[in-house]
Design a protein around this nucleic acid. Structure first.
Lengths: 206, 206, 206, 206
DNA sequence: TATGAATGAGCCTTCATTCAT
DNA sequence: GATGAATGAAGGCTCATTCAT
């Protein structure tokens, strides 16, 4: 059914091959230094073929990043929505999600690319803010709002959900820069992060 | 005083002009997309002049980053060395230092460039690990080692000093990506960070 | 016949056009001063096209010289191989070959370029020594070895076949340098050369 | 007396240093690829100093070549002028002169440079034709005119004095191109050349 | 006179994009 | 649709020449 001809992928598959190749190449070299020749070769298509699917390098770059982000949205969204999950557990679930679904996956590369190239791609930064970041922020706030037992400093975290994500971002960046000099045990770091957050009960001190 | 002649800067000044211009241009476009023409123009020198001071684009890039890093080292070092400062105060001092000496200064741009370009410049990553990061890590461990009163979770922070820095990194990156969509009150975020850290006393629970 | 479409030459043709243009431009300016822009323009291709056929200027230069040399080899080889031709006649044939197949042809320019640029292109000098010069030398020796009748000084020429070629080289160089001041009648010079060689019988005087 | 200040050469010496350095550098790289920086360094002067002695690169090149040629003229001239020397001896003297005064001396390099760069420097070619070549040609003709005894083919050599010089040129070029593959015993080659010339008596034998 | 830092035009090479097949 | 040869604008780097000292 699929593949009406041998050796020739269906259009959707080709698009996926291209996007996959693009992620690899852009990750390795950054946007400006990435060569579409490489993308085409790794995708197993001719260079001109890229232009049948994407109008230019910039658009390919943005679409590629969005294509990886999209599937993550559902996952992210439902973390906050299950009202029955206790906040502390939701927090743990978030860290576990990061550990399992981000670390060592294409999503980790995407985070690095957003961080690196975002400032030069305002449209991209906006997309990520709108579709991923603001939703993550809202999710944390929603979780924090449900926290009534003082398991953690709900006020601080509600005001600055970034503090939850900061060690995740740090992990991604450390791994890309310093792993070879000093490996980072990310699960242990996340555990320590969780410990600190849960110890910092809100009501005692201002 | 020396050579007040107009139109010709002293060699050290010219080098500084070039480094300053380089920081700006590389920050705006990233390494690969930066044009040395722009650097020269902003430095007020001819293109060829760049090559009197630096052998090539890559070296200019690395030297520029190192030139900003170098002065920071002294500051960083003495944060940890004053044994009379109570650990919690040292922590506060660190955050204050970041707020005052990094945010909105060239150092902030340098951090962004390290994060963005480091993976493609292993020598650079190594330099920053050796000269800045590992020293910062050691400084935190030294502070944590002096903590006897349980003002914060010395064990967790001693094991993962990265957790101290994570919100600083997050701040830098947020500002470069999302400030226009949602401004971040970094001093307040740092205060919340400090609050959480100080509340998370080590020995009691968990 | 094949692909009569206008405006687009067949790949082999384009390569030939490029090589032809390269010979002209390199001949006119020498390697270092030749501009690939000129080569491209004369070949009727875009500058980038050159790089589809040759990896860099140096390689284009060497390949161009080899492309002219290659066809000459066959001609050169068979001059010495026909055992039935009397040595004196072979000698005459050699001079006639030079007159007809070198003078005023691309091969003359190639000789000039080898002479001029060879010292800076050791690979090139080696190629010419291996493929052209040493074979020519061997050919002369083979001819001289067959000389039993004392038509010329077989011993001297066998030891120094260069003496046969020297006036040919002189002709090429004279034409490139001094023709405008004093034209050189090369056929007559070669005739005189032949006369001298044939008069210098070996056995008489030491 | 000379050198009014230590470490600072007299102007004429400096000029000589520059010319000497120029010969070396131009010989090694050819005109276009030679760098005046190198010339200055080898001459032990600053780059700007070159321009105090020569208006530009081209003029330096030409003057340098002329400076080496000039002293040769006297030598060349008197070879032909001594009417008492028998022609055959004059011929031998010419070859000996080449062997001793050209081979392995700066003059050899100059010949190579004339050959290589002459076509791009018409003024240079003219200078050499007028000052050196035409005089050498005339000298040979003058010698040949005195040959009455049939020691060599006076007619052929009178018509084409180039035939005398051809092996000399060949020697210079061979040494620059192929010596490393096949050394050339130039004195022996010149002896063979002389033998052939002297054997080729004019009108007697066909 | 001598210096050498500064200049900027020029050239090789790359690569995103186009287009004839 | 798919290909990949062709294009040509752009940029890093060099180096002859100038000029303030």
């Amino acid at each position: 059914m699929r593949r009406p001809r041998a050796g020739r992928a269906a259009p959707e598959e080709r698009q996926e091959h291209i996007l996959k190749a693009a992620l690899e190449v852009f990750s390795e070299h950054g946007f400006a230094a990435a060569r579409l020749d490489d993308v085409a070769r790794r995708a197993g298509v001719a260079k001109g073929t890229l232009y049948l699917y994407f109008p230019d390098k910039e658009t390919l770059f943005e679409r590629m990043l969005q294509s990886v982000a999209a599937p993550a949205l559902a996952l992210l969204a439902h973390l906050a929505q299950d009202e029955n999950v206790p906040p502390a557990a939701a927090l743990s679930a978030l860290l576990a999600f990061f550990e399992k679904e981000v670390l060592g996956t294409p999503r980790e590369k995407v985070i690095r690319l957003i961080v690196s190239e975002g400032p030069r791609f305002p449209r991209l930064a906006k997309f990520y803010y709108d579709e991923v970041v603001s939703k993550g922020i809202a999710a944390i706030r929603s979780i924090a709002a449900r926290e009534k037992q003082g398991a953690f400093d709900a006020e601080a975290l509600s005001q600055f959900p970034q503090l939850i994500f900061a060690p995740l971002l740090m992990s991604v960046i450390w791994r890309s820069l310093f792993s070879q000099f000093e490996p980072l045990d990310v699960p242990a770091l996340l555990a320590a992060h969780r410990t600190i957050l849960l110890k910092s009960k809100g009501e005692h001190e201002s």
